[in-house]
Amino acid sequence: MDPRPIRTQPLVSVHDLSFYRDRRMIFQGLNLAIERGKVTVIMGGSGVGKTTLLNLIGGRLTPAGGSVTVDGQQVSALARRELFRLRRRIGMLFQSGALLTDLDVFENVAFPLREHTRLPASLIRHLVLMKLELVGLRGARRLYPAELSGGMARRVALARAISLDPMMVMYDEPFAGLDPIGMGVITKLIRELNDALGMTSIVVTHDVAEASAIADYIYLLDQGRVIAEGTPAAMQASTAPEVRQFMGGLPDGPVAFHYPAADYLADLLGS
């Protein structure tokens, strides 16, 4: 059964998107749709442009062709002011956390509230503590980013990303570099926040197991376009060689093991 409801508009739709970096093709003819209220996982090998896609959705990059529409607004056509207004409704979790190192945990989570609202200090305190409680770090509020482990830093960054109660959160490689417990915590948080707060989640990752556990819908990217899509079960059951290579973690297959190079023998014998 197709899990996508037919009547609602997708929150994000990417249409015929193309993007180049230094003449190198990153995307060409990319089409995908992110449904409201779902966890959509975008998978693909390293360097396939997953993070670039998030930057295109967030309007930090401008596509060379095609369009990205978020909640009915075409991102690349927005004026700076409107773009910033849209971004207030989008949370983003960076792989590094991107916490402000000169502020402690509390102030990091309070940062968007202080910048964008004129709430009284007592209310900001309540909101920050609520968000920190959600990620289980209320007790760590006076620590500085340098004192946090990788997993904790990511949870603080998550609390910050949801501090303005966004309609959507984008997660850039949320599982990378975490121990199994940390991964479990993040997986649980993404699912819970998505369902409890009624958000939409986009998760970019190359972790097949975590992605399968968390996703409502998966897109698999390669060579600048979507090569497969479906529910986790459908993806696991797929017989397409590219999908099987990726989901099974096989070193060689349609996605070549070798970076394009000249003939091996000729290369060795040549000067």
Partner: peptide, 21 residues
């Protein structure tokens, strides 16, 4: 370093202009 550690990018995504802030 703020740029290298994505702090400036993070601000931009939080709709805060790093040039101003």
């Amino acid at each position: 370093l703020m740029k290298a550690t994505e702090q400036l990018a993070g601000m931009e995504m939080m709709a805060v202009d790093p040039l101003k802030r």
